[in-house]
Design a protein around this nucleic acid. Structure first.
Lengths: 214, 214
DNA sequence: GAGTGTGAAAACATTCACAGCT
DNA sequence: AGCTGTGAATGTTTTCACACTC
């Protein structure tokens, strides 16, 4: 065992995956082996054991892992137990999709505010929340001690929104706008660019072999 | 020079990023150095040079890279010149967001079909396309020789849709449903799970100084 | 002088293979 | 016998540092 609390980034990326796999498992299943979990997550079984070993000594030799322990430990390590609050800025189609996305609430993220500056959207109700103007964001963030800001605006205003979120004392930003945000020292920024994902896929599409430039 | 046409995955993931950076650049700027590009993309400058060197010898020593050459070469390498066709399955909020997303058409991906089995959505017009029942997918895919299928359905039906897409002879799938799709040998699958992204962020919430993943 | 292209080193990540526990 | 936890081996990615070109 090693628990010196420093989990490699590559492992952190897989922890939510393991958690997802465990959630699929029949509730009466009590134990699981690294081999079985690896199969569900589509990774190598040594990988699973190594990854889990960073969380402490969770398994029992000769037996396997207890599903509930594993689940708890993963949630704990990922900070899903604290129950972070989030706000979504921009309630176009993507923002609405995110607001409706049940997965968030289930996994410990409470969406406590939706913001947009389009007058046609303000006061609309979406997924049980009322859309408010961005000027009210600061208020909400203070009131609920919001840790996460989700940006689903057009690219043009994304940086401006990011700056405002940082002023609101937010700790992390999940950005869906197709721009690179300036990153400040103490705010974690993660970007998901839908069109970049497609471009990566595109590379792997077979196509007539490119001529080598000798 | 080396052009043996085998680009490491880590590099492929950064190519769309470089392309995005170049698109931001003033049209009259004719040359760019690895240092400048690295700054825009927020990576190390040696990384930029190494990555670009996989595409061939594109720069000029002592001078830098020509923006237009670089852009062309990146587009070529990523297969964005061929103009792949895509279909979107599931036109809830997320599917609509994707259909409206201008970035796709701009970058060589033509969305040629929207499909859904909800009778309330069929025949609706979204982003200039009419939503059709999934039974018509095969037709459209054949007609336009569609290479990419985008899944934006609820998780429950995602696997079923994936199977149908594969039957339609599609070559790649971009999956937004929060499930792990069975992967077949000859179809590339890329998944984006919105709630997993949040969970990764969450891990870094506690610990202010850790480096972001990816 | 400025800036690329690339060997070589360093850092990081995955996988093998097996000792050791149940 | 079965399965974990982990050294050691292997593979991949990043970074350094410098010869080389303009």
């Amino acid at each position: 065992m090693k628990n010196n609390n420093k989990i490699p980034p590559a492992t952190v990326k897989r922890l939510p995956l393991y958690l997802q796999c465990l959630e699929l498992i029949d509730d009466k299943t009590i134990g699981i082996s690294s081999k079985k979990l690896a199969e569900l997550a589509k990774v190598n079984d040594a990988q699973v054991r190594r990854d889990l070993s960073y969380l402490g000594t969770l398994g029992t030799r000769g037996v396997g892992y207890e599903v509930s322990t594993l689940r708890n430990q993963l949630q704990l390590e990922l900070g899903l137990v604290e129950g972070w609050s989030a706000v979504i800025v921009g309630v176009g189609n993507l923002g609405s999709a995110l607001a409706h996305y049940g997965g968030f609430q289930e996994r410990g993220f409470g969406v406590v505010g939706l913001f947009d500056d389009d007058p046609r959207k303000i006061n609309k109700q979406i997924a049980g929340l009322v859309v408010k103007p961005i000027s009210e964001m600061q208020n909400t963030c203070e009131k609920y001690n919001v840790a996460i800001g989700i940006i689903a605006t057009p690219g043009k205003v994304a940086q401006e929104i990011a700056d405002k979120l940082i002023e609101c004392n937010i700790k992390s930003i999940l950005n869906f706008a197709p721009v690179l945000l300036k990153n400040t020292a103490d705010v974690q920024i993660r970007s998901v660019d839908l069109s970049q994902e497609l471009q990566i896929l595109s590379y792997y599409l077979d196509r007539p072999v490119l001529k080598a430039v000798e």
